[in-house]
Structures are given as structure tokens and as C-alpha cells.
């Protein structure tokens, strides 16, 4: 399986599209969205990798039910952890490298940058249709490291996640500036935690205000990909060891994200075709 090419070429040639999941704000659901999108892409028959670039707060392993697994070393580098339905998802996170899961990674920027570059260059991702990169909040070391590590991958685009509040939209606006300054294409904005339907009386309450994501998309001329409602059942499945055999029972949040996955896939496919011909 090992290619004789340089490490640099590995990711460029063998990963067709890269999708960065970004948000200036924390706790808006980047990791949940990343995990759900990965599963949706898998169900659409794609080969998917998921890189957790949040070094101080890695959440992806818990959400994919790969908590407590360890990374194996292969002859050419780290082998990603296999997780998800019939172990079809390739996963890498700093959580797999910690001996105690409650250990804090008290690292400054340069060290974080080095590890992220290693995640991109030394992990044997293999052939992938899509590599999803889940990022921490902000516009700093990790984000720059990811973009540098990808070294101008021909099909590298970003998905922005926000909640409807003005406080969150403000941070996402800054993230958008980051994308523009770094020349990263933005595929669209997802408004997460948009409205909660009371299970007792079916009244919909906008806990975190409403409409912020959509108005930002309009204002900045970016595609609005849709709203994902607050759904305790999704929080519940993401918190526990997942059982992938009964994935058929989809809640409203999962359905919304699956629809978004289909749109993203189409967009990325077109971009990949353009990149190939040029």
C-alpha cells in the first residue's frame, strides 16, 4: 500500500477533497456536525477520513464511539483509528495519544503546529474521497497549521458553523475574514441549535435567538445550507458509545445534516472535476 512518493504528495494525490469545519465560536457544534457529516458521507458510499485538529479539547472520538482507542504505528507512520459503522471511518485525534483521558494538553502554539503538521503528513490516511478536518474555535495556530499542512490542496474548502445568536455570528464573521485572507473557499453556512421543539407541547422556542446564520449568509453572499434544530436525542447519541447497527432511527437534526451532506458532496464533486481538468 505504501507509496514511494514523498509524504507531501500522499495527501495531495490520495485525498480527493478536504472539508474544513470552522467556526470562530466554541460550542456551536463543529464536532457534532463533523461527526454527523462523516457518517452521512459514509452512508452515501464515500471513503471518509476525520481529523480532529482540536488539541486542547478533542471531542470527535467520544462522538464517534472511539473513546479510549489507541493509535498503531505502521512502517510508514501512524495508522488512523478505524471506527464507525463496520470500522469504515479513518479517525485521528490527539485523544488517542494521551495516556490519561483527563490530561490537559498545556501547549503553546509552535508545539501544536508541529503536531497538526504531523497529523497531516505522517498519518497513513490512504485513499480517501473526503477528509474532514474538525477545528478548534478561533483563527490562530491550529488553523494556520492545517492550511499549511495541506499545502494548497486543490480541493480544500470550508464549512462554517454558527448558532443563531449575534454573539456567535460576530465570531463567525471573523472566521469568514480568515477564509478570505487565506484564500479558502467557503461552501456555506450551517445554523446549528436553531430552535427547540418542546417534547411535551410541541411549542418551538428559539433558545439561542433566531435567523443569525441566514442573515450572515445573505449579507456576505454565501450559500445558506440550512438550519439544524436543537435535538436532545442527537446530544444523547453523541455522548454515549454509539451503536451503528440501528442508525435508521433518525431525528430531525440528523435528517437536516444528512441533507446538508448531500449538498456538500455535490459541490465538492464539481470542484474536484474542475481541479482535475485544469
Amino acid at each position: 500500500m505504501a507509496s514511494n512518493d514523498d509524504d507531501d504528495d500522499g495527501l495531495q494525490k490520495r485525498v480527493r477533497c478536504v472539508l474544513l469545519v470552522l467556526s470562530g465560536k466554541g460550542g456551536v457544534g463543529k464536532s457534532s456536525v463533523s461527526a454527523q457529516l462523516a457518517l452521512s458521507f459514509l452512508s452515501l458510499g464515500k471513503k471518509v477520513g476525520l481529523l480532529d485538529a482540536d488539541l486542547c479539547g478533542p471531542s470527535v472520538p467520544l462522538m464517534i464511539g472511539a473513546h479510549g482507542k489507541n493509535v498503531q504505528r505502521g512502517p510508514n507512520g501512524w495508522l488512523p483509528v478505524r471506527a464507525g459503522p463496520s470500522s469504515s471511518l479513518s479517525l485521528m485525534s490527539v485523544a488517542f495519544l494521551l495516556s490519561n483521558k483527563d490530561d490537559a494538553i498545556v501547549w503553546r502554539g509552535p508545539k501544536k503546529t508541529a503536531l497538526i503538521k504531523q497529523f497531516l503528513s505522517d498519518v497513513q490516511w490512504g485513499d480517501l474521497d473526503i477528509l474532514i478536518v474538525d477545528t478548534p474555535p478561533g483563527t490562530s495556530d491550529e488553523h494556520l497549521a492545517v492550511l499549511e499542512g495541506l499545502r494548497g490542496h486543490p480541493v480544500c474548502s470550508a464549512l462554517l458553523v454558527t448558532t443563531p445568536q449575534a454573539v456567535s455570528v460576530g465570531d463567525v464573521r471573523r472566521e469568514l475574514t480568515f477564509c478570505r485572507k487565506t484564500g479558502t473557499k467557503v461552501l456555506g453556512i450551517v445554523e446549528n441549535m436553531s430552535g427547540f421543539v418542546c417534547p411535551h407541547c410541541a411549542e418551538c422556542t428559539n433558545i439561542f435567538s433566531q435567523g443569525g446564520g441566514e442573515s450572515l449568509a445573505k449579507e456576505c453572499d454565501i450559500r445558506f445550507l440550512g438550519r439544524v434544530p436543537l435535538d436532545p436525542s442527537l446530544a444523547l447519541t453523541l455522548d454515549k458509545d454509539r451503536d451503528f447497527s440501528c442508525a435508521a432511527t433518525e431525528g430531525p437534526a440528523e435528517a437536516a445534516l444528512h441533507h446538508i451532506a448531500e449538498i456538500l458532496l455535490q459541490e465538492m464533486n464539481e470542484d474536484a472535476k474542475v481541479a482535475q481538468t485544469s
Binding site: 509552535p110 483563527t139 490562530s140 495556530d141
Partner: peptide, 13 residues
């Protein structure tokens, strides 16, 4: 401006 991003690495922060 409110849209300005502070794209800084650690030492600068």
C-alpha cells in the same frame, strides 16, 4: 471593523 479577524499565532497573542 467588526469583521476583522485576528489571525495571530501564539507569541503575538
Amino acid at each position: 471593523s467588526a469583521a476583522d479577524a485576528v489571525i495571530w499565532r501564539g507569541p503575538k497573542k
